Amino acid sequence: MTQQPDMDALAARVQQLYRLPPMPAIALRVMQMTAAPETTAAQLAGVIERDPSLAAQVLRYARSALFNYRGELHSVQEAVTRVLGFDRVTHLAVGIAASRSFELPRSGPLGLEAFWHHSLHCARLSLAIARRLPRGAARDRLDPELAYLSGLLHNLGLLLIGHLFPEDYRQLREAREAEPEVALSELEARIFGVSDQDEQAPLRVGHASAGGLLLHLWEMPEPVVTVAGMHEIAGYQGRHEPYVHCVQLANELLKERGIGDEQTRADPVAAARALGLNQPDLEQLLGTIDEVSAEIEDLARGLAA
């Protein structure tokens, strides 16, 4: 089993060293409403619609060809009840709001547009993988909508290290453009120059550690925190293992289409096997990417604007 860090101890140390952005108020409110079983779609929509930009982005997503909804949508409540559902709207709104905490370049390698292009694809594909799992232990322990949120936020640490260390992040972006064949974790280690045992730099080890810590501090669901922190560990075994494998498989399949923050190749069969999936399943999932890619590219441009 993969050894996981003591997140509370790390979080306490991080808060002493850095001024981290708080979870945006609207994201916090949406998460609180989700936790209350009596919350209605109208109440959720009312909170989101207090932020016109967020409401417009949720509606744009619901109106996209991803869902083939042929009717008119005039409100977030209609997006909830007719197209997306309560959980998806909640997760999308939280993801969009969370990304606003960071100031980053829009274009280029590891820019906001690339972040959203990858994250939306990963979320969509993680959902498809979760729904495709055969009956058994992995499927029984995995909520497809939470797999969607895990895919959507798994790279949030990229935004955090760009926000906290802009000069290092500039160098990382330049290195990614110059050496796309090198693993992102290797570039991060080279540029940040520290190891994961460095007591004075717990966020400078790379985006996975940074993202896991931030989402832990924001009190996001445990599977989402674990995926953010552990998604780069091959053969991960531990808490919330199916979610990690789900997002890892999504990322490996996305690399087959040149989508993601690095273009190094790994065989997706091992990740698929851990979830009980086979080659025909992988072919179907690759087809899913092709079906939605153009629409997601357009949505990513809008979210990064």
Rank of each mutant, 00 (worst) to 15 (best):
A305Q: 12
L249E: 03
L156E: 12
S126N: 02
N155K: 14
A138K: 06
G229V: 06
R82I: 04
V182G: 02
Y243I: 00
L203N: 01
A79S: 03
A45T: 07
G211K: 01
V76C: 00
V269R: 13
R50N: 15
Q4K: 10
P202R: 03
L282N: 04
G212F: 01
Q263S: 09
G206I: 03
E72L: 15
L104Q: 10
V194I: 12
L149W: 14
A11K: 12
M7I: 14
P242D: 01
A41D: 07
S64N: 06
M1Y: 08
A97D: 12
M31D: 05
L249K: 00
P5F: 09
A12M: 10
H163A: 07
Y169E: 02
P242T: 03
H154V: 07
Y18R: 11
H163N: 10
R170Y: 08
T288N: 14
L59I: 02
T288K: 15
L125E: 12
Q279M: 14
L254A: 10
N155S: 14
L158W: 02
L187E: 03
T264H: 00
V227A: 07
E145W: 13
V14Y: 13
D51P: 11
P242C: 03
Q4Y: 11
Q16N: 15
Y148D: 02
L285E: 00
V227K: 05
S53Y: 13
E78P: 04
R100D: 08
G302C: 03
L275I: 01
V244K: 00
P223I: 00
A189D: 09
A35W: 02
A300R: 08
A128V: 10
A56G: 14
A114K: 06
A272E: 03
L125S: 11
P5E: 09
A201V: 12
E295H: 13
N155R: 08
V89I: 07
E252A: 09
E38D: 07
M7R: 15
C246S: 09
A234H: 12
A55Y: 11
D281I: 05
F115K: 00
F86T: 05
P180T: 08
A234R: 13
R132H: 09
E145P: 08
L282P: 05
I161D: 07
V269W: 11
E256M: 13
Q263V: 04
A250K: 01
R63T: 12
S119G: 02
H216G: 11
Q284P: 14
A128S: 14
I161M: 01
L282R: 10
G212R: 04
P280C: 09
A272Y: 02
E241H: 08
M1N: 08
A55I: 05
L277E: 02
A65T: 07
T288Y: 15
F115L: 06
L303W: 04
A208D: 09
H121K: 05
R204Q: 11
D298M: 15
V225E: 11
S75T: 10
W116S: 04
A27P: 06
A304T: 03
P21S: 02
L164W: 10
L92S: 07
S150C: 10
R60D: 08
E174V: 15
L249N: 07
I96Q: 12
L54G: 13
V205L: 08
V182C: 10
L73K: 05
T90N: 13
A79V: 00
A272I: 01
P268K: 01
G211Q: 02
L10H: 08
L160K: 03
P221L: 01
H154R: 15
S126W: 00
I191H: 10
A210R: 04
E38G: 00
L159Q: 01
V76H: 05
L254Q: 08
E145I: 06
